[in-house]
């Protein structure tokens, strides 16, 4: 229900408005980072942007883990199935 796009924090904009510039493949916009914890994001961090606000900091380790799982899933699951099939036979 809510379009959220990953963007990279380019710079924090000084001032009371809690703003930062994000880059989405070359498209830049000032967004509000006030919904994140104080000092939670720095330039180079990736955030999820929704209606001009950073909603969440993207966890790069978790992102890699999900992909690794997707890649590894095939093999692990095939092995498991084979084991299951064998145990059924005996």
């Amino acid at each position: 229900m809510c379009l959220g796009i990953p963007g990279e924090i380019i710079e924090l904009i000084p001032g009371p408005a809690d703003l930062a510039t994000v880059d989405v493949v070359g498209v830049r916009r000032a967004i509000n980072i006030g919904l994140l914890g104080e000092g939670e994001v720095r330039p180079g961090d990736w955030v999820l942007v929704h209606v001009g606000f950073a909603m969440s900091k993207i966890d790069e380790a978790e992102a890699a883990a999900t992909l690794a799982l997707l890649t590894g899933l095939g093999q692990a699951y095939t092995d498991e199935l084979e084991a299951l099939a064998e145990s059924d036979i005996t």
Binding site: I5, G7, V24, V25, G26, V27, R29, V49
Partner: peptide
């Protein structure tokens, strides 16, 4: 890519 980015956003 920049058009893709703007469209996604």
């Amino acid at each position: 890519p920049v058009v893709t980015g703007a469209c996604e956003l």
